[in-house]
């Protein structure tokens, strides 16, 4: 009997495995296909029937994209904007999350809900004034302008994420430090920070991903000089001639770094994006 049971379970496990791998492969396929196409010539990229692996692999497209379109500058813009806005946001959010988590008052819940509600305002509702403010203050098409906007856009998520992490740190430890005469500053630096590092790190990771992929403000407020990769890729929407292989190469370079970061942060993703409602 136990032998038969084991046999049915492993048959079932094999079926589930086959099914899950097939579905996973299908969902992943567009990414894989982009990656493969980036190593084809433009002719092979549109050939029918398409070849999957047995074509003459070439890195020509990567060289062309790098030379022609000033790709490194856009990549650098993406790095500055996503990392800059995240670090600035974390800097503002740490003290806020600290007080929400450790000095809760009657209004703590209201403040948190209010912060969440600012995230619900559709960006398009403030597009016109933001554009005019940017134009009149010379912030249009600058990295610092985009850093500022993306900091504000993601600040509620950063506060919420840090809050849910801080909430799990036992308040008694902080009180003990206070009893021992630690000042507020040293309480945060020496007691809270070491325990909060993993939470802060995953907050930073997730927000870099969100800021890297943000495609409303970056497309509307940066046209050329400060345009990050989202805007650079959008320029492929009006193609001239054959461009699949070059589009694929540019796309692969734009998504590869964030895909790798994302795979590392998938566990924190759930918590961060559900505002701690699902852990």
């Amino acid at each position: 009997m136990p032998d038969m049971a084991r046999k049915t379970t492993s048959a079932r496990k094999a079926t589930v495995t086959a099914l899950a791998w097939t579905v996973g492969f299908l969902i992943f396929f567009p990414v894989l296909w982009t990656f493969l196409t980036s190593f084809k010539t433009e002719g092979e990229a549109i050939a029918a029937p398409p070849s999957f692996l047995f074509f003459d692999w070439t890195v020509e497209n990567y060289l062309t994209v790098n030379e022609r379109s000033d790709y490194p500058r856009h990549f650098w813009n993406s790095v500055v904007i996503s990392v800059g806005s995240t670090l600035l946001g974390v800097l503002i959010a740490i003290p806020a999350a600290w007080s929400l988590a450790f000095v809760p008052g009657r209004r703590t819940r209201d403040v948190l809900m209010w912060m969440l509600s600012t995230k619900m305002m559709p960006a398009v509702g403030v597009l016109v004034p933001m554009y005019l403010i940017f134009r009149d203050t010379g912030l249009l098409d600058t990295k610092s302008g985009l850093v500022g906007v993306l900091t504000l856009v993601n600040l509620p998520i950063i506060v919420w994420m840090l809050y849910t992490y801080f909430k799990e740190i036992p308040a008694e430890i902080l009180e003990a430090a206070r009893m021992d005469g630690a000042s507020l500053r040293s309480e945060i630096i020496y007691v809270l920070a070491p325990m909060a590092v993993p939470g802060i790190a995953s907050t930073i990771l997730l927000n870099i991903i969100l800021a890297w992929n943000e495609a409303f403000w970056t497309l509307n407020l940066a046209a050329a000089k400060a345009a990050p990769l989202t805007a650079f890729i959008a320029s492929y929407s009006s193609p001239e001639g054959l461009f699949y292989a070059k589009l694929s190469a540019a796309s692969t370079m734009a998504i590869a770094p964030i895909l790798i970061l994302g795979w590392f942060s998938q566990k924190q993703l759930v918590r961060g994006l559900t505002f701690g409602a699902v852990k």
Binding site: V23, G24, F25, I27, F28, P30, V31, W33, T34, I209, W212, N213, A215, L219, L229, T230, A231, I233, A234, Y236, S237, L247, S248, S251, A254, I255, I258, L259, L261, G262, W263, Q266, L269
Partner: peptide
Amino acid sequence: LVIAPFFVMPTVSALV
């Protein structure tokens, strides 16, 4: 494999 599309920026997934 399943989580990957979430990390692809909107302009890339739309154009691809």
